[in-house]
């Protein structure tokens, strides 16, 4: 297990706080929710590389993740954890970002294998993204080539502990420093890079807007962004409209 490598950012890093509310009842409620969140984790294993081979043993009878409340899930909408298991090529990264953005928060990213940490044996490759946390906030890295199921479970348990304590909120970081992550993405994918999810609008909608959500990169994005607004239901009766 390695420390999360923080890359230099343009803005201030928000300190990680366990948000406590003053109302004791609300506090209990928050505790309950956080506990439930820590005890029920649905993972989406994005099997990009060899690390995936270690996941079935950790899920099945020998190690049985389900006793921790961890289950595999299929679509990003349902999942809490994005497991990136192995080297990430540029093409794959696009999909990983798309998938990450489609997940519902709170969401956690776990990088498995050395390749996600620093490129591992592919560090010389022109086609591989080296550091996953340049492109999205990573909660836990589980290093190793490949990490054994014990290591995977240990990593998951640490994540669970973080969640229970309310420390695992790096997903908020993505909204608050979206410009930073987008900058990295744009450098890799080119200026016209765009995902279907409107992160900025989401940040506004959920009150996650931070000082670094917008910046030069988002300005670039807005130049060639195709519309992403939802198709709102419209009761557009011509006669009534005309009268109005």
């Amino acid at each position: 297990m390695t420390e999360l490598i923080k890359t230099p950012r343009t803005g201030e890093t928000l300190p990680v706080k366990a948000g406590k509310r003053t109302n004791p009842l609300a506090n209990v409620f928050d505790e309950l929710v956080r506990f439930a969140q820590s005890r029920s984790l649905f993972m989406l294993h994005y099997c990009t590389g060899c690390g995936a081979i270690e996941l079935p043993p950790s899920m099945t009878s020998r190690f049985d993740m389900e006793r921790l409340g961890i289950q595999p899930m299929v679509s990003p909408r349902q999942a809490d954890i994005l497991l990136v298991t192995g080297y990430v090529s540029v093409k794959t990264l696009k999909r990983i970002i798309l998938t990450y953005e489609q997940m519902g928060s709170p969401k956690y990213v776990i990088g498995i294998c050395s390749c996600t940490v620093n490129g591992g044996m592919y560090w010389q490759s022109y086609a591989t993204a080296k550091k996953l946390n340049d492109y999205m906030p990573v909660d836990i890295y589980i290093a190793g080539c490949m990490p054994r199921p014990e290591a995977v479970i240990a990593g998951l348990r640490e994540l669970m502990e973080n969640i229970r304590q309310g420390k695992a909120d790096s997903w908020k970081d993505y909204y608050r420093h979206y410009d930073h992550y987008l900058g990295h993405q744009q450098r890799l994918f080119g200026e016209t890079w765009q995902t279907p999810t409107d992160v900025i609008a989401e940040a506004r909608h959920y009150g996650l807007f931070g000082p670094d959500t917008l910046g030069t990169h988002t300005a670039l994005l807005e130049q060639h962004q195709r519309p992403l607004e939802a198709l709102e239901m419209k009761v557009d009766i011509p006669e009534l409209m005309a009268r109005r």
């Binding site: 506990f35 439930a36 969140q37 005890r39 029920s40 489609q102 519902g104 928060s105 989401e202 959920y206």
Partner: peptide, 14 residues
């Protein structure tokens, strides 16, 4: 129960 509470406690949903 934890599953249901967790799912309803999601903070961003589409």
């Amino acid at each position: 129960l934890w599953d249901i509470i967790k799912l309803h406690g999601k903070e961003t949903q589409t």
